[in-house]
Design a protein around this nucleic acid. Structure first.
Lengths: 186, 186
DNA sequence: GTCTATAGAAAGATAGAC
DNA sequence: GTCTATCTTTCTATAGAC
């Protein structure tokens, strides 16, 4: 009897994991439920036992990626030093991140894709973004709260813009210069 | 006899204009040829007398927007002063730009959308981006060419990231703070 | 819970009339 | 060149068997 609650939870997790990767790299419209389910080791029919619609899965995949992301985790472990921030920035603005599939951040990979999605997706994205800004702000060494926040917004826009552009631009040399410049700018 | 070469050129321009606006605000997949042609005052069938495929129109719309964009034009008129650059940055990182439909810049509006498109679209995007960076670099007051270029890449990532995020994030207050912070960061 | 089969809708591209 | 009509494919979501 493979249909225990644990088994269901496991299937659900598999679907979420496959969906996060596929949505991030190809966006909402260019991924089919068929593909996601195949990547999760099941077929289309099983999908609807776990999620109501494709849009619902998309929204949840954004939230779950943010939570299970190892980059974010290592950023948060162990308090707010400036070194942690440097480490995050370097790992974020890396070829490894851009080329995937090593835990792509939905904030940069889906920044345009999210605009036309249902409210549930928008809300998930907005929430994850606000968390990122808040956590970056905590790691900035500055007494004035206003200024920390301001810099955190700037840094986040540079990170997300840099990575999104790195994926968009088709010329490898340009991308390398872009990444190096963003790193230096931060 | 309405079918003169001039008339054809006029129809083509109308299609391009409608497409640029629709693609920028909703991306490639969420816009139909029907919609574009309706916005241009024609029906679907006429489309294929002007463009070979939807993807070809998409690519050309990116190039043509960059050329006909009034923001870009006013940026280039009259030489490379730092004031021109400030003006561009302020106009780019504005609510007016984000909320459209006042000449949205495809570099920020399509930064994620472009990733999965055909090579022709990618090439058009890459070319427009490299032009932006080059022009920004020209307006930066600094003797060393390398440093001008580096700053231009950083500024462009901040502009494009800021605007893309401004559209992605669903909370108006957050967007206002974000824009102000990006402006100050530049 | 997962499977196969299918209903139903949408949209890109083509054909032929005017 | 532009129109209407249609072919064809693709994909979401549902139905019913196991």
């Amino acid at each position: 009897m493979p249909y225990t609650p644990e088994h269901k939870e496991q299937s659900r997790t598999k679907i979420l994991k496959a969906a996060s990767l596929l949505f991030a790299s190809r966006g909402f419209d260019n991924v089919t439920i068929d593909e996601i389910m195949a990547a999760a080791g099941m077929t289309r029919g099983a999908f609807y036992a776990h999620f109501k619609t494709k849009a619902a899965l998309y929204a949840e995949s954004i939230t779950s990626t943010a939570v299970n992301n190892s980059r974010a985790r290592s950023f948060l472990d162990g308090g707010g030093s400036i070194e942690k921030l440097h480490h995050l920035v370097k790992s974020y603005l890396s070829r490894d991140h851009i080329d995937g599939p090593s835990e792509p951040c939905p904030l940069s990979f889906l920044v345009t894709d999210i605009v036309n999605r249902e409210p549930q997706g928008r809300r998930a994205y907005t929430h994850v973004y606000q968390q990122l800004v808040a956590h970056v702000a905590e790691h900035i060494p500055c007494d004035r709260k206003k200024e920390r926040e301001q810099r955190a917004y700037g840094i986040s826009a540079l990170l997300i813009g840099g990575v999104a552009l790195g994926r968009a631009v088709g010329d490898d040399k340009t991308v390398d210069v872009l990444l190096a410049s963003c790193l230096k700018t931060v």
